[in-house]
Write a protein that binds this DNA or RNA. Structure first.
Lengths: 184, 184
DNA sequence: TCAATGTAATTAGATAATCTAACTATAGGA
DNA sequence: TCCTATAGTTAGATTATCTAATTACATTGA
């Protein structure tokens, strides 16, 4: 869960909003000489934007009493519902987190009856994880809002901007996934 | 801290990588009719990209034993070092988190001698917070790497792409900050 | 002037998402 | 059959949040 600090008595005394420029000045002073300042500026804004997008989505999902990580996992299960075997290990591998972290997520989701864990007959060490009917229902309730929030992020771009933007985003994301060794 | 799961015995059995298309199919099936699918697609990739960027930066900062939130706060203090009064309240206000959360960050930073808390003479309820010499030193050690990581995020774009991208990013970020009521 | 109320900061206690290390149970090979 | 690898969980920790309660100081108005 995150943000939405509501009230808590508004402070009189406030810090002035500095905007971007002091960050850029600081950058000029402190960046190594082989760093391209324009690129760094761009990267910085992307970082900020990423933060804001995450916040946005979190706020949105909070209404459904679920977090992005958990929705992520439910979607993963949803898209692999046809697989004979989906284990906590393979989930961990895919999400780039530890098995124990997956266990924690699964416990939470199971408690809410959103997933089911079944022993795997062919190998007694393994567990098959699948999304439950209730889980699917929840996902189907969430998704329309989720997509519309996604769309709203880029609403104000015109067709042409969107086209260029899309090309660039896909490129950047692919290269980052490669660097991080992650990916869907 | 985050990622870098290192080893933990590579799993034999893996989930197939599905790529983007099943997400798009799911979107087509589940988006409300007034959601623009192209926009939603774009937004979704931005969300993923934002996640990846965060991870990237986290990994980077881990080497300095600090997190993004804490660096953020140190930078804020750095840029307001000339202010007579910087209180936990005003910091909370600016970062969009609760005062108690700021207290927690400050305790950690103070323990490491990166900041100093001084009672404010003109109003006994308030505390002035400033970055310490040690804090400044750390920031100066971190920033070159930080900027270079930022730059590396968009390295593979050519000049023209960067130009368009920059315009779009600034626009989107501004509108999101407005919607969220945040901002630097 | 002093009691009531407002504000600043902290503390207490909770939740979420992660980690490492240790443990249990099963599988499979020498 | 015993040893070791693997799957999953548990135990215990950290980070970043939150809300509610507490403490201490400030202000104000009868």
């Amino acid at each position: 869960m995150k943000r939405k600090p509501a009230k808590e008595y508004t402070t009189e005394q406030q810090l002035p909003k500095l905007g971007t420029s002091p960050y850029l000045k600081l950058m000029e002073r402190t960046a190594s000489s082989d760093t391209n300042l324009n690129s760094a500026h761009l990267g910085l804004i992307m970082l900020w934007l990423g933060d804001n997008i995450l916040d946005m989505v979190d706020i949105d999902l909070a209404a459904f009493d679920i977090t992005e990580s958990k929705l992520d996992l439910l979607l993963l299960l949803s898209l692999h519902a046809d697989q004979e075997l989906v284990t906590p290990s393979s989930i961990a591998d895919r999400l780039g987190i530890r098995r124990s972290s997956v266990t924690a997520l699964l416990i939470w989701l199971e408690k809410k009856n959103l997933i089911v864990r079944e022993p795997y007959a062919k190998d007694g060490r393994m567990t098959h994880v699948r999304i439950s009917a209730e889980g699917s229902t929840l996902v189907n309730q969430i998704l329309p809002t989720f997509w519309s929030t996604c769309a709203s992020l880029v609403d104000e771009l015109d067709k042409e901007e969107q086209a260029v933007f899309q090309k660039v985003l896909v490129k950047l994301n692919a290269s980052l996934e490669k660097r991080l060794g992650s990916g869907r």
